[in-house]
Structures are given as C-alpha cells and as structure tokens.
Simulated assay, not measured.
Amino acid sequence: MLTAIGRDANNQVYPIAWGVVDIENKPNWKWFLELIDDDLGLDGGRGMCVISDQHKGLLEAAKEILPFVEHRQCARHIYANFRKVYSGVEFKNMFWAAAKSTVEGEFKLNMQKINQISPAAYEHLMGKEPKSWCRAFFGSGLACEAVENGMAECFNAIIMEARKKPLLTMLEEIRLYMMERFFNLKGTAEKWESQVCPGAIKKMEKFAQYIRSWIQ
C-alpha cells in the first residue's frame, strides 16, 4: 500500500491518499504521485517537503512529478539501521541530539561528541547525507520541522487489522474509518473558542518559554 500522510493545522495526522499496487517501484510511485498532483495541484512540489525512507522508486518518481519538493530522509529509519551496529542509550541520545540540531554549529558539536567515542559511528552517519535528516539544514518557509515520518507510522498502525482482510473489505474499512475520523474532528473543531488551533497555541506557548532565555 502506498500512502501520502500529512499534518493538519492542529498538528495532527491527516491522511491525504492511499492506494494498493502489486509492487513498490518507480512506475507505481509515479502513478500515485501523478494522481495526487493532478487532484491537489501541487505545482511541482514548490513550498513542500516529503519525508520518506528514501525508497529509490519514490525518489526517482518524485524527481519527475515533484521536482521542486524538498525530500528528507526519515531520521527514525536512519537510526534503526545505525543502532544495529552502534546500540545503547548514549549513542541513541547523541544521534537524536544531532538530528534535531537547529543550526549547523550545534550539529557539528553533537557529531563531534559521537566522533570522540567512535570515529566509525561518525563516518557511518556522515555517509548518510545529514543535510536530508538534520533539522539545521532544512529549507526555511516550509513550516515543517519534523525529522521523521511518524505520521505515516501512525496511519499504518491504525489500518493494521484492516490490511489482513480481502482487498475490497480492507479499502471499505479504511474509507469508513476516515469518514468517522473527519466527522469527529470537525465536531471537535466547532467547539474551539479561538480561531487558532489548540495545537498551534500550545507550540507558541512552548516557544515563548524558550525565547525568555535567548541572548542576542
């Protein structure tokens, strides 16, 4: 199953499209992206980012259909492969500190800590194109600071039972789930007192706490 999952204005999971194919390859990803682009008018991916596990078929299809999109690697996928060789809490904490670094200097400092413990671990991560999974190198103006595609994992977990069923039954269960979800979210949103989503307000309040200690 190919899926495109985004976030809504309240920072919640928003399934955009899903489709069933016989195999995950470039032609099928191209077909999937063409349908999304035609339906939503994505303008070649301008002002958008895609976070994935860097499947070659998706990368090549995106270059043709969404040539202007910023394609990021899922840091969780990078770490899953990294910990097979470099396991332990210390490596885990250092990796995520590096991935979530907001400026290049901070990234270099965190990577240097890894280098001091294991030069091989440092070389391993530097060989994984850090500019595609470290926050410090992401393009500005995209309003998306995510370094992993947990949104897609959430959707996959929700439809896990449905995927065990025959094709038409599976698709019908997913359709019914999504209709119910959108209905419930709409009902919740109608009860909000503010014109700004609670998720956005919560984020701004958190930012405000950090800003108090900033020094220019």
Rank of each mutant, 00 (worst) to 15 (best):
L2K: 12
A4T: 01
A4M: 08
I5E: 02
I5R: 00
G6N: 07
R7P: 01
N10Q: 09
N10M: 05
Q12I: 02
Q12P: 07
V13A: 06
Y14K: 08
P15A: 06
P15D: 05
P15S: 09
I16E: 00
I16Y: 02
A17T: 13
W18F: 15
W18G: 05
G19F: 05
N25P: 03
W29H: 14
K30T: 15
K30N: 12
W31S: 09
I36K: 10
D39P: 02
D43V: 07
D43M: 10
D43A: 10
R46S: 10
M48L: 15
M48T: 11
C49G: 04
V50R: 06
S52V: 00
D53S: 08
H55M: 06
G57A: 06
L59P: 03
E60P: 01
A61N: 07
I65M: 01
I65A: 05
L66K: 12
H71Q: 14
Q73N: 09
R76Q: 13
H77N: 12
I78R: 08
A80D: 09
A80L: 09
N81D: 00
F82Y: 08
R83S: 01
V85A: 07
S87L: 07
S87R: 13
G88M: 02
V89H: 08
E90F: 02
F91R: 05
N93E: 12
N93S: 09
N93D: 12
M94G: 02
F95N: 03
W96F: 15
A97W: 03
A98N: 01
K100P: 02
E106Q: 15
E106R: 11
F107G: 06
L109T: 15
N110E: 11
M111R: 01
M111I: 07
K113M: 14
K113S: 10
K113C: 06
K113P: 01
I114H: 03
N115A: 06
N115R: 14
S118W: 04
P119N: 05
H124D: 08
K128H: 01
W133E: 07
W133A: 04
F138T: 11
G139Y: 01
A146G: 00
E148R: 13
E148G: 13
N149F: 04
F155Q: 02
F155N: 01
A157C: 08
I159E: 00
I159K: 03
E161P: 00
E161F: 04
A162S: 15
R163C: 14
K164S: 08
P166M: 10
P166D: 04
L167Q: 12
L168M: 14
E172V: 01
E173H: 11
R175I: 08
L176S: 11
M178W: 09
K186Q: 09
T188L: 13
A189Y: 11
E190R: 15
E193T: 15
E193W: 04
S194A: 06
S194T: 14
Q195N: 13
P198I: 06
G199K: 10
A200F: 12
K206N: 07
F207Q: 11
Q209R: 15
Q209S: 13
Y210L: 14
Q216H: 03
